[in-house]
Simulated assay, not measured.
Amino acid sequence: MSRRHLLVLAVLAATWGASYLFIKVGLRDFSSSFLVFARTALAAAVLAPIAYRRGALRELQGAWGAIVVLAVVQVAVPFLLITEGEHHIPSALAGILVASAPIYTALLALRFAESERVTGWALVGILVGIVGVVLLFGVDLSGDTETLLGGLMVLVASLGYSVGALYLKARLGTLQPAGIATATMGVSALLLAPFALVSFPSAAGADSVAAVLALGVLGTGVAFLLFYSLISELGASKASLVAYLAPVFAVLYGVTLLGEAISVATVAGLALILGGSYLGAGGRPPRWLSRTGPSRSTSPGPARAR
């Protein structure tokens, strides 16, 4: 991975990690459906001029069926689930649970994406990550039914991100990321418009409006353009590396700006999920561990996708 790719990953992680903060603030005055509609509509408006100048929109002819599927699987439904989930759980915890996306990607690749398939330490990583998720659900999300349901919503949304990443690479990987991002955001906004109109707010505070603007322009428009670019250049597994860094920023923002509390179980779950996701995407284990454990896995998909 080049320095440019590493820089893009870092910027994307910092931006995406802030999305959970923006969602939590936006929910003070907006419904989940209106919030998701607003962020996708804003993102499409920001991305459309870029896609037009690059000629990316012309490439979408004949691909609108796949675009609609991608919009539903990776944008509209996951966004709604995460937003609704944050009614019941802290923004930091939502960011941590979304970090399970690389684990899902590795699991799905075993069956559906031979070029992304991993073995050895990657399989160990999957198990480690699952233990982290179980720990969070057993301790931090065991308070009541609503809290548990909120965590499950975010976890299902993470699955949608993974399915969408593999689907994008398989069906739309030859198209320009700017066109894909613009189209998926626009389609998602259209799908959510009827629900947003029903819950249109009568009034909203300046902080909520600012949060929605930042969420739509930065956390959605710019972020998905960067993410789709990484998928096209590196493959789904390596692009999902952003999930290792984004939750760290989500926790940092949640604790420092929203005053959210974190427990020992939260930190332990985060460490297990991130470590498992790292190995699941083909990362190298420590040298002392690799000498005694299973052979280091390789991830042929990303290597060929360069």
Rank of each mutant, 00 (worst) to 15 (best):
L215I: 03
A265D: 08
R291F: 07
A165D: 06
G293C: 07
R306A: 14
G216V: 01
S290F: 02
S2C: 02
K169V: 14
F249N: 01
I262E: 00
V69Y: 08
M1W: 13
L274V: 15
G150V: 09
S2N: 15
S100G: 08
L12M: 13
G259Y: 11
V75W: 00
A13N: 04
L81K: 08
V69P: 08
K238R: 15
F30Y: 15
A189C: 13
A18S: 12
G164L: 07
S31K: 05
S295L: 10
H5T: 14
A66D: 14
R3C: 01
A45K: 05
G55P: 12
A211Q: 01
V124G: 02
L9E: 08
L192G: 05
D144C: 07
R111I: 15
A305S: 14
A45N: 01
I180Y: 05
V11E: 06
T147V: 15
S142L: 12
F249K: 04
L245P: 06
V73M: 00
I103C: 00
G275D: 06
W121Y: 14
F195N: 04
S199W: 10
A38M: 11
L107Q: 08
V156Q: 01
I96D: 01
A76T: 02
A56S: 14
V124S: 03
R304F: 01
M1N: 11
A268Y: 09
V264E: 03
L123K: 06
S263Q: 07
L241N: 13
I89M: 05
A239C: 10
P286A: 05
A193G: 00
S91H: 06
V25G: 00
L110Y: 11
S142Q: 01
V77A: 12
L274S: 02
F227A: 06
L225S: 01
L60K: 08
L70A: 05
S290G: 05
L81P: 14
A63C: 10
A157V: 06
L252T: 13
G276T: 13
L274K: 03
S188K: 04
I23V: 15
S100C: 07
L175A: 07
K169A: 13
S232D: 11
S202D: 14
A48G: 02
F137D: 10
F200P: 02
H87M: 11
I273E: 04
I89D: 02
Y161S: 05
G235Q: 09
V124I: 13
A45V: 13
L192M: 04
A18K: 04
F227V: 14
T182E: 01
G85I: 06
R117C: 07
T147S: 03
A236N: 09
S290L: 10
V118Y: 09
L166P: 11
L155A: 03
G138F: 05
R284M: 10
A14N: 00
S91G: 09
